[in-house]
Simulated assay, not measured.
Amino acid sequence: MADHYEVLGVARDASPDEIKKAYRRLARQLHPDVNPGEDAAERFKLVTHAYDVLSDPDQRQRYDLGGDAGAFGGSGAGFGGFSDIFETFFGGGAGGTRAGRPRSRRERGQDALVRVDLTLGDVVFGVHRDIEVDTAVLCETCQGSCCQPGTQPVTCDICHGSGQIQRTVRSLLGNVVTSQPCTTCQGYGTTIPYPCSTCQGQGRVRARRTVSIDIPAGVETGLRLQLPGSGEVGPAGGPNGDLYLEVTVAAHDVFSRDGDDLLATLEVSMIDAILGTSVTIDSLDGPVDLEIRQGVQAGDELTIRGRGITPLRGEQRGDLRVGVQVVTPSHLDPKSRALVQELAKRTRPAPPHLAEFHPGLFSKLRGKFKR
């Protein structure tokens, strides 16, 4: 009998992986379905037997010691080779593909995404919206059956309702039965001889509909709100997918958001900053009185409690934080200038000078006045 290592063309110290690769390469060349010659068939048998022996550690050890590692076709021979042959040529296990149940025409519908534009006021209080969406809806003519009224699906006369077609493949050790979806019914097991003329047999149509939604306070740009079951209806009247609302909040001319707080900038004249005053400002939920203390400085922050944003998951509203910007007059008439000079004499203000450096001063000012 020929040496198994020579038959496979590998060294005696070849690894199991090298032996397997050599066998597969030769099996592709010599398999009867590829090479019908008689010589090829005999060589194929030798290659298969050599692989059966050398791929089994115990048989290989006995063979290397000079023992009889199983006569051709004996106990244990052929099993590993057959499995590898099937995997090489058909990509599956030796048992073939087991036929499954027919596919269902009813499937879950796709999710839908709609973008919603909101104002900052909508974010503060929440808002009710009626959203127009263009999605697949249930066909009113067939109610999802896909059939013309008065008709129904019929069993496929090719696969007889199984949704699968079986195919017999010849192999070295016999015939192997495989299954694949029936091309006539597409694996459903039934056909529709009279499709609904409204939906062309889909069980759904495209339509524009209105969805009512209460958008909670505290949402922000990029947030997606999920409405389960409000998306597209599935094929053949399958369950609806979900609807997602993606929020975009428009910038406001006066107010900006910082977490749950609102920020604003208040311009104060130099006189009001010196003497102090009170003012009524328009917040997003109505007028609010604000006291400006005497001697307020540029960059100071005035806080109005509870006039910010209601958090998405909570009840305590944030604050309205107002940054002060002192406006210095750039043009004075002679009389006003004289009064300011008199004030300077009386208060004896310190001349401009460098003060102790505060690293956070500039970032603090930017934070107060950002819009």
Results as ranks from 00 to 15, higher is better:
residue 160 H to T: 14
residue 128 H to D: 14
residue 75 S to D: 11
residue 233 V to E: 01
residue 31 H to A: 10
residue 320 L to Y: 10
residue 364 K to D: 05
residue 197 S to I: 04
residue 311 P to T: 10
residue 273 A to R: 02
residue 74 G to D: 03
residue 352 P to S: 06
residue 90 F to M: 14
residue 324 V to Q: 00
residue 224 R to P: 03
residue 242 D to K: 00
residue 212 S to C: 11
residue 113 L to R: 05
residue 306 G to I: 11
residue 153 P to C: 01
residue 19 I to W: 05
residue 260 D to M: 10
residue 315 E to P: 05
residue 310 T to G: 12
residue 206 R to S: 14
residue 9 G to N: 09
residue 270 M to A: 14
residue 44 F to Q: 07
residue 307 R to G: 08
residue 312 L to V: 09
residue 286 G to V: 11
residue 270 M to D: 12
residue 76 G to C: 04
residue 306 G to T: 08
residue 322 V to T: 05
residue 112 A to I: 06
residue 309 I to H: 14
residue 276 G to M: 03
residue 289 D to Y: 05
residue 231 G to I: 00
residue 40 A to H: 06
residue 254 V to T: 06
residue 321 R to Q: 10
residue 322 V to P: 02
residue 169 V to I: 10
residue 105 R to T: 03
residue 330 S to C: 12
residue 171 S to F: 12
residue 301 E to D: 10
residue 44 F to K: 07
residue 92 G to C: 11
residue 130 D to S: 15
residue 93 G to S: 05
residue 44 F to A: 09
residue 277 T to L: 02
residue 132 E to V: 15
residue 29 Q to E: 15
residue 233 V to F: 01
residue 203 G to D: 02
residue 192 I to Q: 00
residue 152 Q to Y: 05
residue 191 T to I: 07
residue 194 Y to T: 04
residue 128 H to Q: 13
residue 173 L to N: 09
residue 1 M to R: 09
residue 25 R to P: 04
residue 77 A to D: 10
residue 209 R to D: 12
residue 333 D to G: 13
residue 294 Q to K: 10
residue 7 V to A: 03
residue 209 R to F: 13
residue 353 H to P: 04
residue 74 G to S: 05
residue 360 G to S: 07
residue 76 G to N: 04
residue 206 R to F: 13
residue 304 I to D: 11
residue 68 D to L: 11
residue 259 G to L: 10
residue 73 G to P: 11
residue 248 T to N: 03
residue 275 L to G: 07
